[in-house]
């Protein structure tokens, strides 16, 4: 039995090929929901899900407000909304103020996911151009979850993994291929 129940991944600039790679490597019967908090163009509502879906091993969807969370699905935070994980296995969305110039904000998805999944959560921060996600991954760590940052030397833009590493004692600093291995390992 795995110790974990959910995965949350945050990234922005330079993260698209990494996320594609991660999703392509996940088996169809992956036992966890995967929450994707990625910075994206504000008013481009469509296209991103389709682009991520092409190679993904599991379905990728943008949840509606109050949609039920299920294992084996990747949930992409919708354009111009914050994506929160609520108690009772549902999402809620929000149009509240941007955090670090971002909506969706990585910090908020990570924080709310850590409130619900506590030490059963795996948080991953990859390439990105600001420090959104640093506070979020610190929450994951504080609640006893597993924390992973992409090796800043490998990241296209290292501000985001650097921010995460500075914010808390990250459990694993890994290259993307090893992040993929880790995400499969924690599921077994």
């Amino acid at each position: 039995m795995s110790n974990y129940k959910a995965i949350v991944i945050g990234g922005s600039a330079g993260s698209f090929p990494l996320i594609t790679k991660i999703l392509a490597s996940l088996p169809k019967n992956y036992p966890f929901p995967v929450f994707l908090a990625l910075h994206r163009l504000k008013h481009v509502r469509t296209g991103f899900v389709e682009a991520l879906s092409i190679k993904s091993g599991i379905p990728v969807i943008e949840p509606n407000d109050k949609q039920q969370i299920k294992p084996g699905i990747a949930y992409l935070a919708p354009s111009n909304y914050h994506m929160y994980i609520e108690p009772g296995n549902t999402f809620s969305l929000s149009t509240e103020e941007m955090v670090k110039f971002s909506r969706p904000a990585i910090d908020l998805t990570f924080e709310t996911a850590s409130n619900v999944y506590r030490d059963k959560l795996v948080g991953v921060i990859v390439s990105g151009a600001n420090t959104d996600g640093a506070n979020g991954i610190a929450f994951v760590k504080k609640r006893g979850g597993l924390t992973i940052a992409q090796d800043p030397q490998e990241a296209t833009i290292s501000t985001m993994p650097d921010g995460a590493i500075k914010a808390t004692q990250i459990d694993h600093i890994l290259k993307i291929d090893d992040i993929v291995k880790k995400l499969i390992e924690v599921a077994n």
Binding site: I85, E86, S94, T112
Partner: peptide, 9 residues
């Protein structure tokens, strides 16, 4: 009220 956003407020 939805918990997460209420808490944030």
């Amino acid at each position: 009220y939805a918990l997460s956003s209420f808490k944030r407020r």
